[in-house]
Write a protein that binds this DNA or RNA. Sequence first.
DNA 1: ATTGCCGGGAA
DNA 2: TTCCCGGCAAT
Length: 464
Amino acid sequence: MHTRRLVKRSVIGSRVYAPGLTGDAAPLSGVIQAVKQDNRDASTGHRRNVYTVLMQDGSLKEYSEEEIAQMTAKAPLKSSLKSTCNGGQRDGPTQGQNGGVQRGEVPSLSPESTEEPRVLEHKRTGRALEPEKDHTRSVSLLEQKRKVVSSSIDVPQARKSEEEVDMDKVTAAMVLTSLSTSPLVRSPPVKVSEGLNGSWKDGGFTPSSYNSSGYWSWSAPSDQSNPSTPSPPLSADSFKPFRMPSLGGPPDDNIDEHDGNSLLFDEPIPRKRKNSMKVMFKCLWKNCGKVLSTAAGIQRHIRTVHLGRNCDSECSDGEEDFYYTEIKLNTDSVADGLSSLSPVSPSVLSPPPGLDQRQPDGTNGAKSENSTTTPLSRSAPSALYLVHTDHAYQASPTHNRTQGFGEQRSQTIAVLSSPPRAAGSLSRKSRGEGKKCRKVYGMENRDMWCTACRWKKACQRFVD
DNA sequence: ATTGCCGGGAA
DNA sequence: TTCCCGGCAAT
């Protein structure tokens, strides 16, 4: 059963070649758009699949499983992947080493039209050296990734048909996700993952972080190995150390849970976008926040990932529409990076003034919030830990002020790099220089103070 | 002397 | 958790 399902998913989006389809000898290629199941042999439990293929010429045709198999088998190099898929699926548990893997992934990637595969292709091509077949490449990449994963996780490959399946799901999900986010956020990541440390997680992970935007460059001792990217990924250097504590062990940490994305980070992200204004589509599903560049993509994402439908948009009832929203970003590295990190309203995505301006001088932790009057321009505490500190403090419940973006941002940062405040200044923060509630409102208006001030705590309203 | 706010503690 | 405040440290 599982196998069946997998098959379905895996095949969709695959390209097949149909030599004689149209009657002439010229091979026609098409992309599998959908798979239907025919329960004719219900008695035997055997089902036959009917594949809907979008032909090169734009026509739609249906082929039986056998036909598809043949098509793929005969197909030239390009289709090698597909054939693998098909072959693999049938083998069931015994399938070859990676048959399973591929199957799961390919399909999920390009369930719909050719458009999607294309994206993928692009991305990969960006970094890939050899001009192989797109699909093939993507598959192999995935495959590689998978290997890495399993190796780091120590998963016995041979036995686990069952596990394999799960793996596929996961991978598929990863791919999906990565697909969605990568364009925006992760240009840098790619390299990191590959070159620096073998750990895909690390690499991928980093990028997603706000750091990648390059705003922290000042702090990183960095040898950021990412010359090509405009925004240097903080990656390895600055990033790693911080996370370590939490990891305590192998690189294959438990990824950041706040978002499944982390999983996919290893995905190669090709290049960075330059357009300044971009419309994106964000998944509103709880805890998802995936952002895709195309409506179709987001719909597919929702359909497959959240609604659990593997079918094409055809069978969609439009429900997906309720789960995503369109957002406009004026892209710049910052916005990009952030968008993926946290689900924030696009309107806030503009470059955060405060962050990059902070300088290591002071000491008090200021939280960068955009409280209306905050004089961020002034020099302030060094970004990283300070932010973190503050944020931590803010964690305390009361807070009506909107701190959407800034807050999330700082949070992210905190996660990424959380040098114990102790490290820096042992004792208390140095006195803040900005105005404080007391100063601004005076004792008479104590009730106008921010709660922190009222409690004789670090002011939350006028942060330095 | 003032001011900011940490560290504690009471409610 | 919320609210206070003693008391230290920076101004």
